[in-house]
Amino acid sequence: MTLSVQLLAMSQSSLRNISGFIKTKGKNHFVLSDAPSAKVIILDIDNTEGKLLLSKLQDSQVHIITLSLFPKSNTHDSTIQIKKPFTGNDLLQAANTINNAKKSNAIRDTNTQSGNTHPSNLGDSDTYDPSHTLQGMLRKAIQLSDTEGTPVLLEVMQYRIEINFAQKQATLNFLPKRLRTLCYFPLNNRTCVIKKGALHSSFDEYHNMPIAELSWNTALLCSRGRLPINISESALYKLKAWPNLTRWSVPDNALKISSLWSKSSSSITAISQQLAIPITNVRSFITAALDSNLAAICDVTSEIVPLETKKNNSALFKKLLNRLKRAQ
């Protein structure tokens, strides 16, 4: 049985190597997933983020595979430790161990209802509360910078983000790829501090990006196919402007969703049905578009323009799109 797996708190090269292994020799054991319902998480715990994530995940129902130079003896039952340097066979053995454990549990606990208690799920698995995520904290920081007219600093552990609303710029003291891990942490006012201030010049390397891009990427990473609790699937939304998809993160079917949603107001459900795409794609898209101020909620009386497509060129379009995809 293939196990859906997420890779967290690891370097780009480890991510690449393990992903490559899973897609080839490991494909009968694992399938890569970014969804909150992934059954297994592979964590590198030789860094601060990994250690922190491990402490938060250990009470959840998800199976954890840790990668470390120094495996510990006092670990949770559901944690499988792999000592570095590791091989693909170590990962395959871990997959077999998990599958065997699942079979044993299934036989023993046939009457037990196991809910999805992944820490990134807060309540219903289709919805989440952004106020407990980096997305919500970022919104607060942006709002504060706007009302106060000064730069605002958002701090989570050693990670700092400076928001300068007047210049529409965000500055990070970490690589943008680290956002993925930060978006998995539930945050509150103790773990995330927001205050007026700017990054000190003593930090060696900063990464600048437009606030809209940071908002878009963060919202996508926090949403992961779910809808914020204050967003309705049946309400009407419209895209005011297209996202900058050549430079920002591109969620699945983003071009199609952008095209349809820019023509007319529509609901999340209707977009998913008209394009015949998973509703999770549309949820992520609208969450990011609303946060980056590219979309707005429409009045219920808004006109919905029916989708009319020029079917006489559909063969051309398919050929051209296939050609463009092959050329990537």
Partner: peptide, 26 residues
């Protein structure tokens, strides 16, 4: 979109967006 005219991926995405503007279901 922000593009580099020398970049195939950027220009491909422009054309892809153009086609899907005509027919999002293509």
């Amino acid at each position: 979109f922000e593009v580099d005219a020398r970049d195939k991926k950027d220009i491909n995405m422009l054309v892809e967006a153009l086609i899907l503007s005509i027919d999002p279901t293509a």
